[in-house]
């Protein structure tokens, strides 16, 4: 029904804290997707057993050594150095570097290259509370195709419920792949120069991608601050401000939730969802 990505240009702004609090605040079925596939950490807050693990695969080239004539066209085509050809040896494939573009098979003149499924990561499913499911993506270390795992995680949730997505930090490909899959992006930031700077990078990317988004200010000391000024100037909605609080920081350090220490925030979070829903014209 509605997919909301929680993202931030800078790490450590409270992205995971907000994703978890939103998941807990909404009554009824909610799926939380952990798309920070290089460092998934939502599960650290829920000490429950795994329900299911599914492999994520991509197509990678396999060389038929009898058919390969060592012409080197595949290596020349590959932009990712994932296949090489030396002397009279058959071509050698490095699956971890492969972007699965199919270019090598396309240019091979002897039909020596076919493509086979290769595991690059997995999807982990956990029931974290009644009606609440956590689906985490995990990219195997050394592999480069984070966006593929992110897309696979997104395919696992069903369309008829609310989905909250913990997005990867930064504004590179994994961030792009995550927000492409969502209806709305919440950018979590802090009212500091660091926070503002990284926020503006994320805003530039989202604008280029023509996505709906709004801002949540975490660790806010004052109702009017440099981030609210910026948002006003740029005409970006400020959805919520979460106060700077030692209690919240302590709770996070223990693996606790925002709602454990500030249960009153639940109403603010639900009001924020209503606001988002109105902005994108969707029903909850």
């Amino acid at each position: 029904m509605m997919k909301i990505a929680v993202a931030s240009g800078k790490g450590g702004t409270g992205k995971t804290t907000l994703s978890i609090a939103l998941t807990q605040a909404i009554s009824g079925k909610v799926t939380l997707l952990d798309c920070d596939v290089e460092e998934p950490n939502c599960h650290l807050f829920f000490p429950v057993e795994l329900d299911e693990t599914l492999p994520v695969t991509v197509l990678i080239p396999v060389v038929d050594e009898d058919l390969c004539n060592s012409c080197g066209k595949c290596a020349e085509m590959c932009q990712f150095n994932a296949i090489i050809c030396m002397d009279i040896d058959p071509a050698m494939v490095f699956p971890a570097l492969c972007h699965s573009c199919g270019g090598c098979a396309l240019v091979c003149e002897t039909g020596a290259i076919s493509e086979e499924e290769c595991v690059i990561g997995c999807i982990e499913k956990r029931t974290i509370a009644q009606d609440k499911t956590l689906i985490s993506g995990r990219l195997n270390i050394g592999y480069s195709l984070a966006p593929t795992v992110i897309r696979a995680v997104n395919r696992e949730q069903s369309d008829n419920q609310i989905t909250i997505i913990d997005a990867p930090p930064g504004t590179a490909c994994p961030f792009v792949a995550t927000v492409s899959e969502s209806d709305f992006t919440i950018l979590v930031t802090e009212p500091t120069k660091f926070g503002l700077h990284d926020l503006s990078l994320a805003v530039a990317t989202l604008r280029e991608m023509k996505r709906h988004f709004g801002v949540v200010i975490n660790r806010s000391e004052q109702a009017e601050n440099m981030v609210t000024d910026y948002c006003q100037q740029e005409n970006i909605p400020v959805l919520l401000q979460i106060p700077a609080s030692r209690k919240i920081a302590e709770s996070y350090s223990r693996g606790g939730s925002l709602l454990d220490v500030m249960p009153e925030m639940k109403l603010d979070l639900l009001a924020m969802l209503k606001q988002i829903q109105a902005m994108i014209g969707s029903k909850i």
């Binding site: 990712f80 150095n81 090489i84 030396m86 490095f94 570097l97």
Partner: peptide
């Protein structure tokens, strides 16, 4: 300045 796989190409250069 290789995008990725610099080690592989470098090894290939040494072989050559």
């Amino acid at each position: 300045n290789a995008m990725q796989g610099a080690g592989i190409k470098t090894a290939q250069n040494i072989v050559t």
